[in-house]
Simulated scan of single mutants.
Amino acid sequence: MLSFPFGKVVADSVIVSQDVKEQTLNRNVLLAVFSMRVTRWPDGRPIRVFVLPDRHPLHDLFVKERLQIFPYQLRNNWDRQVFTGTGSEPEQVDTMEEMYRMVSQTDGAIGYVSDSFKLNLEQVRVIDEF
């Protein structure tokens, strides 16, 4: 099991800003969103994706377990889109606290935090995966 200064990383929660209407996302949609291939919510509003640094233990765990790919594959996808001008990479934040703050303050935002992170569900919502 991975660990880092905040303790053991056991799982993660996908969080979205309160204005996002979706209650669930399947793994394929989640992968498309975090791969920056799907850039708009079904209602047409832009999706703002936030991620932790590539080497952060929670990022590694999230990508491997929730997206079911390797982090380098996700990075290669972002780099290819930026290089070819066909897309962009997500916005990077340094900590779970910053992730929570940015998702809670940004319309159409999506990100992830450790399940051990204390969430205020009046500011963000947890999305279930099916």
Rank of each mutant, 00 (worst) to 15 (best):
S17D: 06
D19F: 10
D19K: 06
V20K: 10
V20D: 08
T24H: 10
N26E: 07
R27V: 04
R27K: 13
R27W: 00
N28I: 00
F34N: 01
S35M: 06
M36R: 08
M36Q: 06
R37S: 11
R37A: 09
R40V: 14
R40E: 15
G44D: 09
R45E: 12
R48V: 10
V49Q: 04
F50C: 04
P53H: 03
R55C: 06
H56P: 10
H56A: 14
H59G: 10
L61C: 08
L61S: 14
L61N: 14
R66T: 15
L67G: 07
I69A: 08
I69N: 05
F70I: 09
L74R: 11
N76E: 14
R80A: 15
R80N: 14
R80P: 08
Q81K: 15
T84P: 06
G87M: 11
E89M: 15
P90I: 02
E91K: 09
Q92P: 12
D94T: 07
E98C: 02
M102P: 02
V103R: 02
V103T: 06
S104E: 03
S104M: 03
T106C: 01
D107F: 10
G108K: 05
A109Y: 04
A109K: 01
A109C: 04
I110H: 04
G111H: 02
V113E: 01
S114W: 01
S114F: 01
D115T: 15
S116K: 13
L119W: 03
L121G: 02
E122K: 13
V124F: 03
F130S: 08
